[in-house]
């Protein structure tokens, strides 16, 4: 039964990783942009929620609602002012610009909030749990997992059922032809990054509620998120969810064997899957 418990905890943890990864997957799938600042943007989101929460005395869930449009705006501005200028055939400029952004955000947070670790105070729900048979499930991890599913469902709905989603897919497949149909790729990209940061803020809420965070933890989150995206395959949002779950389960089993092996097991699972399937499990797009 201990294995069932480990599996369950791993899946729930994987839900959080899928949330980290969903925004990244969207942006990567649509414009092949490798956003190395994604992890730091999640941490930034957590600080924004914390800041709004403490300034107005709000519960983090309410504060996150206020943070969502702010982060959407930030994403839109970031893409319009900065990232649209470096997109192109060469992957190096966007890689380096987002890398620079990552270092800037990390150190600006360090200057502004110091290196102390913080936590989002979500209230009594934090410690609540219920049991099914012999396994007990925390309410917060379950809510996180549910949110991950919901976010993926919403993104899929946008992607496949709306005009905006059609523009996303068209631009992803062939930006030049999409332009002939009256789509402006740069505007589409700005909206995509805005949505990605909304998802990042949701991820930030659960990150901050689950454990302590400080300005330096962004890059590690980015790595988990990217591994999830790559395991899932380019452009597949459900694949990204599966990727997150794979990393989560691998980490849980690694930790069950030896606490020091938790992170290691996740990375090794990533390498093993890529050895067998270099394009990930469910690639939608080819590039």
């Amino acid at each position: 039964m201990i294995w069932l418990d480990t599996l369950l905890q791993g899946l729930l943890l994987g839900g959080l990783y899928a949330l980290f990864a969903a925004g990244l997957s969207l942006v990567f799938g649509i414009m092949r942009l490798v956003n190395l600042a994604h992890g730091d943007l999640i941490v930034l989101g957590a600080y924004v929620i914390l800041g709004i929460g403490t300034a107005f005395g709000l519960n983090p869930f309410v504060a996150a609602l206020i943070a969502l449009p702010l982060m959407f705006l930030l994403g839109w501005v970031l893409q319009t002012v900065l990232l649209n200028r470096v997109l192109g055939d060469d992957i190096l400029p966007p890689l380096l610009v987002t890398f620079g952004l990552s270092v800037v955000i990390q150190n600006a947070l360090l200057e502004g909030f110091s290196a102390d670790s913080r936590k989002l105070p979500v209230g009594p729900i934090e410690a609540e749990s219920f049991s099914i048979g012999s396994v007990s499930i925390g309410v917060m991890p379950l809510v996180t997992f549910g949110s991950a599913i919901l976010v993926i469902l919403c993104l899929n709905w946008i992607f496949y059922r709306t005009a905006l989603g059609r523009a996303f897919r068209a631009t992803s497949d062939d930006a030049v032809t999409a332009q002939l149909m009256g789509i402006r790729p740069k505007r589409v990209f700005a909206l995509a990054t805005g949505i990605a940061l909304v998802v990042a803020t949701i991820a930030a809420l659960y990150l901050g509620a689950r454990a302590n965070f400080d300005p330096s933890i962004g890059p590690a989150r980015l790595l988990y998120a990217f591994e999830a995206v790559i395991i899932g395959g380019l452009g597949s949002l459900w694949g990204t969810l599966i990727g997150g779950l794979v990393i989560g389960v691998a980490q849980a089993f690694g930790a069950a064997l030896n606490p020091e092996w938790q992170i290691l097991a996740g990375h090794i699972a990533f390498v093993l899957i890529l050895l067998v399937r270099p394009r990930g499990l469910f690639p939608r797009a080819y590039d």
Partner: peptide, 25 residues
């Protein structure tokens, strides 16, 4: 042998993951 199967961004992330594996090992 591992990272050369990956292209562009995948290569960057792949090399980083391998380095993390080495650090933890």
């Amino acid at each position: 042998f591992f990272v050369f199967r990956l292209n562009g961004a995948y290569f960057a992330i792949g090399t980083w993951a391998v380095a993390e594996i080495a650090r933890l090992s």
